[in-house]
Amino acid sequence: MSQPSMSEALRGVVRRDLLLAMRHRSDVAMSVFFVVIVASLFPLGVGPEQAVLRMIASGVLWVTALLACLLSLGRLFTADYLDGVLEQTLLIPQPLAVLVVGKVFAHWVISGLPVVLLSPLLGLQFGLSGDSLWVLTLSLLLGTPTLSMLGAIGAALTLGLRGSGLLVALLVLPLFVPVLIFGAGAVTSSLAGIGSEANLSLLGACFLLSLAFAPWATAVALRIALE
């Protein structure tokens, strides 16, 4: 029997997770609506002043993206853990870290990508325009995969624990801070007209670093959780 190659295994994991998500479409829709509702609450609370809204737009939208990622982290491994699929996944001869990359990618497509696609619309709500709108979308496109990557570590560490929802927030939110600072900073600096390249480069660096280390740490954490 020939073994599937690493890229075939990766594709298999992504395909399966996306297929499962498509079968539960309401789950995906929920995270989209969550983002829209939370982002719409701020103008109601802060008041409709255009200048104020434009100033807080990047921070609010980034924090919303953070929360959306955080809330969907429970879906990443829990279902597989409960029905035993995760245990079988650990037995697959391909490196676990590669399979984790597949799962995280699928998670990002389901929870991060909708936020990225929605962000120009939400930005308009907050009075952003032109360049800063593009920078917002680009920063989210670069940043949200990092969030999913770092979140996976927390999700794996807290797998099957009581109160894991709150615990994962406690663990993961501090790790999200650099991404939040650079992401929101990119939009703010583009609004101030000093160019957002530096912040976007740093976001890219965060992404590459997390791509290199996070799947590996997640794999270790999964093995610990299922020992």
């Binding site: 570590i153 560490l157 663990l171 501090p174 790790l175 280390f213 740490a217 270790v220 954490a221 610990i224 959780a225 020992e227």
Partner: peptide
């Protein structure tokens, strides 16, 4: 598990 999980998180941090 408590030992090892918190060790992984400490190293990540």
């Amino acid at each position: 598990r408590a030992d090892r999980a918190s060790a992984v998180f400490a190293l990540v941090g």
